[in-house]
């Protein structure tokens, strides 16, 4: 607030003279701004459409020799579906990933629960896990072939090995992140150990587990691709290997697209899981 104390010059200003108006900045509201509404589904498609357009342009520029055009890949894909080759290959690959991830995730989860709940188990498990997880799964491929041959077993085991660690690490971190003050609550309510595990530890570590699961699925596909490249009598990897021998880049693209699609679908699967299991974290306006 500024008062014009300097204006009290004798003779010029008498009592009761109005003060100079303060210099205010005035403005008015604009009301609700009209929003441009593009349906979110369409907005999300813009990126993929752009990629497709670039692919097409590149294919045309190269006369489709190195890079097959999207329509050629679609045609080849349709043929492969009709002949049953692609569905068979996908089924074989999917089964490997599903079995491997199921094994790996279960093992990671059990180990994390043991480590998180029992001090002695933590001492026994945690340090070795941190050493073993430093081994790249891909470096184990030759050993896996020597030990388990070239059938399904080494592939499944490699996937299980790789996917076990993210689940272990994130679930264990999730258990450790459960607020210590709930211990006190549990004691004051005289909760049994089983109730503490079921009502506090497991739900509290679920967000961590789901993060681990997501990493695991990504890793599962990665390890699958590598193990199938090296040796496979069925599955997408075998289809790829054949395609390479016959210079069929269109078939290779069908396989690559299938990998992409399957990876994306498994990510959607975890997201759906999260939406249901972590409903308590989201703010519902009404329900």
């Amino acid at each position: 607030m500024k008062t014009d104390a300097g204006d009290t010059r004798p003779g010029t200003i008498g009592p009761g003279v109005e003060q100079a108006a303060p210099n205010l900045h005035s403005f008015s509201g604009a009301g609700l701004r009209p929003r441009r509404h593009i349906a979110p589904a369409i907005r999300r498609l813009l990126g993929p459409i752009l990629v497709l357009a670039l692919w097409w342009a590149a294919a045309i520029a190269g006369h489709g020799r190195r890079l097959p055009a999207p329509d050629a890949v679609l045609a080849t894909g349709t043929d492969l579906v009709r002949s049953g080759q692609l569905p068979d290959a996908i089924a074989a690959s999917l089964q490997r990933v599903a079995t491997g991830v199921a094994l790996g995730v279960s093992a990671g989860l059990v180990l994390a629960l043991l480590s998180g709940l029992f001090r002695i188990a933590e001492d026994l498990i945690d340090a070795p896990v941190h050493i073993l997880r430093a081994l790249p799964a891909l470096a184990l491929v030759p050993l896996a072939i020597l030990w388990f041959g070239i059938g399904e077993l080494p592939k499944v085991l490699l996937i299980a090995w790789a996917t076990c660690f993210p689940v272990y690490l994130n679930t264990f971190a999730g258990i450790r992140s459960v607020d210590r003050s709930y211990d006190e609550l549990a004691r004051s309510l005289q909760l049994g150990r089983w109730t503490v595990v079921r009502r506090i530890v497991v739900p509290g570590s679920l967000p961590g587990f789901l993060v681990g699961l997501r990493y695991s699925l990504t890793l599962g596909w990665l390890v699958l691709v590598v193990s199938e490249q090296i040796n496979a009598s069925s599955g997408l990897g075998q289809l790829m290997t054949e395609a390479r021998q016959f210079f069929r880049t269109d078939v290779m693209f069908v396989c690559l697209d299938s990998y992409g699609l399957l990876g994306w679908l498994s990510d959607r699967f975890v997201r759906t899981l999260e939406r249901h299991l972590l409903a308590w974290r989201r703010e519902y306006q009404n329900r």
Partner: peptide, 10 residues
Amino acid sequence: FQDARLLPWQ
């Protein structure tokens, strides 16, 4: 308790 300590996931 002062902080109610409700379990957020239940």
